[in-house]
């Protein structure tokens, strides 16, 4: 039984999008269009999750996620002892 095709959805940050049309032009499946200057996933079902739109977007305005995929946030080590005592105050 063919594995059920993955379904992708798009996270759009309209405030970031500047309507440069790169994602629309280079999407291999013509999923995206510009609607009043902002990217809009018109045919999300055609998306194959190649993420070229996400990688090429100069404004981080579009992200492609498979259903249930939760991206891991950046790693950040906890507070480290300071070389110089923080409480020491001067002037």
């Amino acid at each position: 039984m063919a594995e059920k095709p993955k379904v992708f959805f798009h996270i759009i940050r309209e405030r970031y999008c500047k309507g440069c049309n790169i994602c629309v032009a280079f999407c291999p499946k013509q999923v995206l269009v510009l609607k009043d200057g902002k990217v809009f996933p018109e045919r999300p079902e055609a998306c194959i999750g190649c993420k070229m739109c996400e990688l090429r977007c100069p404004d981080f305005a579009i992200e492609v996620r498979a259903k249930g995929e939760e991206p891991v946030a950046a790693t950040e080590s906890g507070p480290i002892d300071f070389g110089v005592p923080p409480e020491a105050h001067h002037v």
Binding site: C20, I22, P71, A74
Partner: peptide
């Protein structure tokens, strides 16, 4: 990973022109 977690999101959107390659 979560790309945006590496950004100072209060500073976005950035100043580069629409379609500028620096963002990429």
């Amino acid at each position: 990973g979560d790309t945006l977690s590496y950004f100072r999101q209060d500073m976005l959107p950035h100043i580069w022109c629409p379609g500028c390659g620096h963002g990429t």
